[in-house]
Design a protein around this nucleic acid. Structure first.
Lengths: 232, 232
DNA sequence: CCTTTAATATTAAATATTTCATATTTAATT
DNA sequence: AATTAAATATGAAATATTTAATATTAAAGG
């Protein structure tokens, strides 16, 4: 983690400020801003640790991170993967005083730690603002719920197909993308063994449905993936 | 579904009113109440249908219902099961204009349909009220997320053990309970075949960990169930 | 009361998945 | 450049799970 002397990004151009100031005054935002800290995390660094106390909301300004959960037996599990800009708070941090998930950077992440108390004070004064945040939070939940549904009644190749589609459409927003996730991480997302991921990806690669070159993946036949997802 | 002439339950003694009137005035609640309708649903009846438009929040006054999802291939899946009194809205109905899950009664349910618009109008005026509802909604999400986690990295017997514990602790609130769910429904909750459920329950019954008598189930050895959940 | 249907139960065969063993490639470190 | 560790890859054996076939029991309808 790197604390930043000069600002990482300009608060006046930040998406969080833009949304916020539709509902609250610049002066009110300034109070929140002054209690906020910008930080940068490298790939692999833990931003929030499962089990720790939650005292801040997190605005993911730029970058990609994963929500992870690990159980007593030491198994890791990826709940969802999100790309900035996005406010992370409702799920993990808002009301539970200990975090139920960890947040770990998958790519370099520019984030902003927002003091929860100052933020809540402002929120309760602006119902419409709170309503919008509520909505955004629910949306994020839904994206992970759809992964769970896929996971619950699809077989491994269908789940992996779904993950490839999700990453393409919601995270990297491109048909081809630099694949910063290891096979092991995809396994933690798809809830299967990493061998299974490797086998499935190799097969898709050989078929030509996707192309794997080094760390890069290109989805050649999106319909085929959707078909696999449907029928498995 | 039965529309009720005389009131099913007294609005003045309703838990929803009690919570609400900590934050809003009786006169404001009265406006919401007048736009609300009491309904009774029998076991098996669909209260809200996946895909339909959502125009109301639902307060589950009394009873037990399931959140279900069915995919294109016709497979059903139970997301979670909840017992009243509980406000259902944030997840399914609040912001999406079509419902992404169905709600189906597992036991006789007394519910109250609350006009969404009237409710929202009041909410935005009372930040603290909205914040509490936000919190309750997130809590409900979390309970289903823990089921998903169990589902994601446990084997079938561990998942079934978890479901038995969940039903005992969160839904029926008793070590023994009248089991209104069929084996098929447990299978839809545990995301496995119903044969698997039957085999697992029979085994637990023979071992003495649980006792099955007709529709009744008694958990004799909670620790054993928790152990199964841990090690699978 | 009889008939039909649905739910519960059990087993064997088929399939899916994980685990294990081992090899190769890639990346990181000295 | 050599060494080590990590990631990727593959196949066989072990295990878990589903499917299918069939029987029994309980519930529902005429």
């Amino acid at each position: 983690m790197m604390e930043v002397e000069s600002q990482l990004f300009d608060c006046n151009k930040c998406a969080f400020k833009t949304i916020s100031c539709h509902y609250i005054g610049d002066d009110e935002f300034e109070i929140i801003r002054q209690l906020s800290v910008q930080l940068q995390f490298e790939k692999g660094e833990t931003i929030v640790k499962q089990g720790s106390k939650s005292t801040h909301l997190i605005f993911l300004h730029k970058g990609i991170l994963k929500f992870t959960y690990h159980n007593q037996s030491g198994k890791n599990f990826i709940m969802t993967i999100v790309a900035g800009p996005k406010l992370l708070g409702g799920a993990n941090l808002f009301f539970k005083n200990t975090n139920i998930f960890s947040l770990v950077a998958i790519e370099k992440c520019d984030i902003c730690l927002i003091d929860e108390r100052a933020f809540k004070n402002t929120l309760v004064k602006h119902g419409n603002y709170l309503l919008i945040l509520f909505e955004k939070t629910i949306e994020m939940f839904q994206s992970s719920i759809f992964n769970f549904i896929s996971l619950a009644h699809q077989q491994v190749n269908g789940r992996i197909a779904d993950i490839l589609i999700y990453l393409s459409e919601e995270v990297y927003k491109n048909q081809g993308y630099e694949f910063t996730l290891s096979r092991k991480e995809i396994a933690e997302f798809a809830a299967c063994s990493h061998e299974n991921v490797i086998t499935t990806l190799s097969k898709l690669n050989k078929e030509g449905t996707i192309t794997l070159v080094g760390k890069k993946i290109i989805i050649n036949d999106l319909n085929k993936l959707k078909e696999i997802s449907k029928r498995s």
